[in-house]
């Protein structure tokens, strides 16, 4: 039975899957954008549509004490938008709440 087990489990399946995802995307992209002056904006793209983003943004606004909104995009779906550089905050929050696995997060920016 152990041998059966050895065969059905492909140890590289994860690696293959994640590299494909990398190209075609199954990731949550956290980006930063500069606005006028030294103001910035954080966007979170790629959250599962099974989640209620409105509820997430409400929780985040309270937690990080910043404003935020959900934007509907024809190609990227619902995108979370938060004021300021919330990249650290949102990454921690998403992983801590279990909504996103750490390896699914891709943080962009400087």
């Amino acid at each position: 039975m152990s041998i059966q087990n050895l065969n059905t489990f492909d140890p590289f399946a994860d690696a293959i899957k994640s590299s494909e995802d990398d190209v075609q995307d199954g990731l949550v992209h956290v980006r930063i954008q500069q606005r006028n002056g030294r103001k910035t904006l954080t966007t979170v793209q790629g959250l599962s549509s099974e989640y209620d983003l409105k509820k997430i943004v409400r929780a985040c606004k309270k937690e990080f004490a910043c404003n935020g909104t959900v934007v509907e995009h024809p190609e990227y779906g619902e995108v979370l938008q938060l004021q300021g550089d919330q990249r650290e905050n949102i990454c921690q929050w998403l992983t801590k709440s279990g909504l996103v696995k750490p390896e699914q997060l891709k943080v962009h920016g400087f």
Binding site: Y51, D52, K55, R58, A59, E63, W93, K96, S97, G98
Partner: peptide
């Protein structure tokens, strides 16, 4: 603690999301 964290953070919103998570 995940659930707990979520509950404390999201208050009203947990009931629907919990099973999915």
């Amino acid at each position: 603690d995940m659930d707990a964290a979520l509950a404390s953070e999201q208050g009203e919103s947990t009931s629907v999301e919990a099973p999915v998570e």
